[in-house]
């Protein structure tokens, strides 16, 4: 692979994440041109099965990121339990075991802020269902860097607190249902 892809997608989700991601990710076509980073609040004391689940369900390859994992277009990277996932540059993921942020490690804010630094206006940030405030600050950072901010509509969300906090912090965000989001992403082409 030469050079980095044209942009990236980063998704944060908490309570209800599995169902929401199951609507959003499987419809994406095998030729989806961007890397997708996913941060879900998972328990820190046991292995996560998310990457395996979505690798089986999706047209795209899903992997749990390890430190300095190379970023490939059209691959889905899940943050591992008990580590923050950061974007070091357009080619590399970096992990960190710094303190929890808002009681979370991985933290959606940490991942989104670093992604905003790296990808700037080429980034799409998405906040899905969740019962806390994580991601609000991160989405704001994405928007401030010129990226696109999208939030799952709180009415359709399993837990509305996280989408609501994201909308409050980032009022310019587009609010969408999951199927609309899937359709929107599927239209992105290289």
């Amino acid at each position: 692979m030469t050079g980095a892809s044209k942009g990236a997608v980063i998704i944060g989700a908490s309570a209800g994440a599995l169902e929401a991601l199951s609507v959003l990710l499987p419809p994406l076509p095998a030729a989806f041109p961007l890397p997708i980073f996913v941060v879900v609040h998972v328990p820190s004391d046991k292995p996560s099965v998310l990457a395996d689940i979505f690798d089986a369900k999706c047209n795209l390859r899903a992997i749990e990121a390890e430190d300095k994992e190379p970023v490939m277009p059209g691959a889905i990277y899940f943050a591992p339990p008990n580590y923050h996932m950061l974007l070091e540059d357009k080619q590399n993921i970096a992990l960190s075991n710094e303190e929890e942020v808002l009681f979370s490690r991985p933290s959606i804010d940490v991942a989104m802020e670093s992604a905003a630094d790296v990808w700037g206006d080429q980034l799409i940030g998405i906040i899905l269902t969740g019962a806390n405030q994580d991601g609000a600050r991160g989405l704001q950072a994405i928007s401030a860097a010129g990226g696109m901010a999208i939030v799952q509509s709180p009415d359709g969300a399993y837990a509305r607190a996280m989408p609501e906090a994201a909308i409050a912090a980032c009022p310019q965000a587009q609010v969408m249902s999951l199927p609309d989001m899937a359709a929107y992403l599927s239209r992105i082409s290289g």
Partner: peptide, 9 residues
């Protein structure tokens, strides 16, 4: 060092 984390701190 990995700059993403240094920058944050």
């Amino acid at each position: 060092y990995a700059m993403s984390s240094i920058k944050r701190r």
